[in-house]
Design a protein around this nucleic acid. Sequence first.
DNA 1: ATGACCGCCGGGGGCGGA
Length: 251
Amino acid sequence: MRIVTWNVNSLKARAEHVARFLDQVAPTVLCMQELKLEDDKIPRELFSSRGYHLVHHGQRTYNGVAIASRLPMRDLMIGLPQVEEQESRVIAATIGGLRIVNLYCPQGQNVESPKFEYKLRFYDNLIAWLAKLDEPDLMVTGDLNIAPRACDLFDPIGWRGTPSFHPLEHQRWQRMLDLGLQDAAEEWLPEGTYTFWDYRSRSFERQLGLRIDHFLVTPSVMARTQGAVVHRSVRAEEKASDHAPVQLDLG
DNA sequence: ATGACCGCCGGGGGCGGA
């Protein structure tokens, strides 16, 4: 089972990139974030014509998440239960017995911003929900907008205390680990592997990246992992998303 | 080394992203 998470930064702008990726990499499951499209504007045939089922939680202009899968999906969940939602950031489905939660977590802007408070609340709601879940085979994936370790971003000193590398975010990250989730890609990717490079400042060419797209999994899923890879060549394409697809292979 | 890029909406710039 080949599972990929990819913040596409507009599915409309990235439709050809996504089609090419499906044809070349043929993931079993593709979790996407930042569709920036309403549900009725999703290019469904892009997926159906290639043999993929699609579930989506779209939104105009901002956010939006979807899961494309070659295998049937059941027990679809749109948003977190009992959490009032303004933004489309959560979708979950069970695929081949694996519960997959696909997230686009808030970025937080800066520590003084209400958006940072929102990010922390988002995580608190998420963790409270995860703590009550009873899913032995669970995967929490997506653009989590947290670089967990110093080696997961190019300038940990300069970034210390700013969103994506803030102690209050690392608290939340640790709470997810304390629930028994493990950073699956960390086990397979060399230190200094990134998944995001900002468009500004020629960050990709200069290797100024962050590892913020993740797979957090329960031990039974961890035991099935066979490898992980970041598709950096996709980030190098013309008109690429600022995130590269991240792949995790399960036996 | 985040002013400098890209996509959104809308029809000109301003906002959001990390």
